[in-house]
Design a protein around this nucleic acid. Structure first.
Length: 201
DNA sequence: AAACGGATTGGCT
DNA sequence: GCCAATCCGTTTC
């Protein structure tokens, strides 16, 4: 059930960003387990991607996590407020990553409701990367964790979406990446209410 | 040493 | 729809 680290060593981050749709992301914080079905992702294509923190081979304290082997979590603070969760993929020193932008609450819904102070019926509870991370209790302390451990991991529950139901679109909030902002490297499940806006083509 | 700005969100108009 | 919130990595002086 729990995806092994070898799963993340695939060097095709565009494949993994799509394959992660339908997988189930778990966290266990002081025995409070929550999980959500991944319904929206974005691929970040390592040193060649102007939208990536690792563009041009940039290596700093923050981006060092991206150079880990595949199957490590990369969590960083955005706008001083939001923790954004990524899955590092590929092999060591090749800094590809998949941003998890939305999940559909599956397990521990009452705990998510307390963390987000809203009903699980409201799409906003886990829609958008900052909200999804908060619903799952993910913060800076989850940075650089192996995804085959007991704090955060991903399982395959056999959920599959027809390829017609996987929408490809330009990534969100990366206008600074110039021409790379136009690449269709955002993937989401058609019609799922937890997908962030815009959720149509 | 200081300034800049972002892979966003939610509250108010 | 617009804008403030709020931190720290990164760039610039």
């Amino acid at each position: 059930m729990k995806l092994p680290l070898s799963y993340y060593s695939n060097q095709d981050v565009l494949f993994l960003a799509q394959d992660l749709l339908g997988k189930v992301l778990f966290t266990d914080i002081d025995d409070e387990v929550t999980a959500g079905i991944i319904v929206e992702t974005e691929a970040y294509f390592g040193v060649l991607d102007k939208a990536s923190h690792a563009y041009g081979g940039r290596r700093t304290n923050r981006t060092e996590t991206l150079y880990s082997h595949g199957g490590v979590s990369y969590v960083y603070l955005c706008y001083g407020i939001h923790h954004l969760f990524n899955v590092v993929t590929s092999v060591k020193d090749e800094p590809h990553a998949v941003l998890i932008r939305a999940v559909e609450p599956l397990i521990g819904k009452n705990i998510m409701e307390l963390r987000r102070n809203m009903s699980v019926d409201k799409a906003a509870i886990s829609s958008g990367p900052g909200s999804a991370a908060k619903a799952l209790g993910i913060d800076q302390s989850f940075n650089k964790k192996d995804l085959d451990g007991n704090e955060i991991w991903i399982e395959d529950h056999g959920i599959r979406y027809p390829s017609d139901d996987i929408i490809k679109a330009p990534r969100i909030g990366v206008a600074y990446a110039q021409e790379d902002a136009l690449l269709p490297w955002r993937f989401f499940v058609k019609g799922n209410k937890y997908v962030s806006k815009p959720n149509t083509i």
